[in-house]
Design a protein around this nucleic acid. Structure first.
Length: 420
DNA sequence: TCTGGGGTCCTAGGACCC
DNA sequence: TCTGGGGTCCTAGGACCC
């Protein structure tokens, strides 16, 4: 049996841990740049606030309904996520970290104990130690465990735990859940399925396999098997090596000066390089892209990206910033209002297996020492004290984060003070 | 009349996930 | 004025090879 443990409204719950006055009130958390709603409390959902709603369109509504609005604080959420995982690890060592707020746990072989009780224990441990509410779904396959979890959240009767241990219980859910709520079926496939008469998950399960294979590729077929109880998606206890690392951001406002884009890009590339060093990886290819605001139909649109093949794989900030800047020279066109740019590192290899070149002109040993020192200094002060020239101090591109909560668990100045 | 077959690699685009 | 970011996988089509 597999369990899927999923934190309820995770980002909102994190905000509530350090601000209990938010309990029972409508709370939303916004995406980067305070763009759209990416997490909602139950009360916010009840008000009809949809996932992905642009915040600026609902500002009056938020004010009129006393909705508490927060910018996303990924440092805080990441830190609490680690603590959730630590608690989950005490229940079984067989665990896959699926996302910041979800984990699959394998209870195969422990069928002797009561799963309902085990689910209740998990919920209580995380609630009491961290103050975060979670929901647990048990089932023989990942896709069914997802479904059990979703069912537990939707019905409320289940007290946050649902176990799919008989075909009758599985059928009950398949009859209840719409195709769009199946894990692996997104909006496009949901539309296609409904158009062809498959409305509920049960219709999907009974659909002809050839039709699924033809219209939804092997992924659809896999989902079909998973729903029939045939496990096709393995538990990945070891986090797979990353295949790409990306940093891309919309700017706080539109930019048309090349210098401003250079500065933004240099900062994002610096972040990519930092992530690479963190994971002890180097990249052989970087992709740089710039784009205008696609929502503004009235504006001239421009999108362009370019791949740069590096002579020697690297994770050095100055080297990558230099290449990215050359890439920008190629793709930049004057006369557009740019809204976003980004850098993706591809073809990642471990630091230790970099193939050097006879014709290499860079002093890699020296560069590595410099980067290590920069990381140490910046790490100690918790911010980018040491910066590269192109990264500048203009910050015209900077994110809007007007409603950011403190980093309660990771920054000493932000630790809560208890009054006496 | 008849104009090969089998393979690899790369890229762009589309789907999905949280 | 303001519309997220970071990932994965699959497929089709084109270029190229012998």
């Amino acid at each position: 049996m597999l369990a899927l443990v999923d934190c309820n409204n995770f980002y909102v719950s994190c905000e509530r841990v350090f601000n209990p006055s938010l309990d029972g009130k409508p709370v939303v958390v916004l995406s980067n740049n305070d763009g759209c709603v990416i997490a909602r409390s139950d009360e916010a959902k009840a008000l009809g606030i949809e996932m992905g709603t642009p915040a600026f369109m609902r500002e009056t509504f938020f004010n009129n309904n006393y909705v508490h609005v927060y910018s996303s604080n990924y440092v805080l959420y990441g830190s609490l996520s680690n603590r959730v995982i630590r608690i989950l690890s005490t229940f079984t060592p067989a665990i896959e970290l699926y996302s910041i707020d979800e984990a699959f746990l394998d209870f195969t072989g422990s069928s002797s104990f009561n799963l309902e009780n085990a689910g209740g224990d998990i919920r209580m441990a995380i609630k009491e130690n961290l103050g975060i509410p979670v929901t647990v779904g048990f089932a023989p396959t990942k896709t069914l465990a997802k479904m059990a979890n979703r069912f537990a959240k939707k019905t409320k009767k289940t007290l946050g735990v649902h176990v799919l241990d008989t075909q009758e219980k599985i059928n009950e859910i398949l009859n209840f859940i719409g195709v769009g709520d199946i894990w692996g079926v997104g909006p496009q496939y949901a539309k296609l399925l409904v158009k062809n008469g498959f409305k509920k998950a049960i219709d999907f399960v009974n659909a002809p396999e050839e039709w699924i294979r033809k219209n939804m590729s092997v992924m659809g077929q896999r989902t079909l098997n998973e729903l029939k109880g045939i496990a096709c998606i393995e538990l990945e206890e070891v986090t797979a090596a990353k295949k790409s690392i990306c940093v891309a951001r919309g700017f706080g406002k539109l930019l048309s000066e090349k210098g401003d884009l250079q500065e933004a890009l240099a900062n994002y590339v610096g972040m990519v390089a930092g992530k690479l060093r963190n994971e002890k990886l180097c990249c052989k290819i970087i992709n740089v892209f710039i784009q205008t605001n696609t929502h503004r139909r009235e504006d001239q649109q421009y999108f362009r990206s370019i791949n740069i093949q590096l002579p020697v794989a690297t994770n050095s900030s100055f080297e990558l910033i230099r290449y990215a800047n050359e890439a920008l020279d190629v793709i930049f066109r004057a006369g557009y209002s740019y809204a976003k740019c980004g850098c993706i590192a591809n073809d990642l290899i471990p630091e230790t297996t970099v193939q050097y070149s006879m014709y290499d002109t860079a002093n890699r040993h020296r560069d590595n020492v410099v980067m290590k020192t920069v990381d140490t200094v910046n790490g100690r002060f918790g911010k980018d004290l040491v910066r590269f020239a192109l990264q500048g101090y203009g910050k015209k591109w900077k994110l809007r984060q007007l409603k950011l909560s403190p980093c309660y668990t990771t920054r000493i100045e932000d630790v809560l003070t208890i009054k006496n």
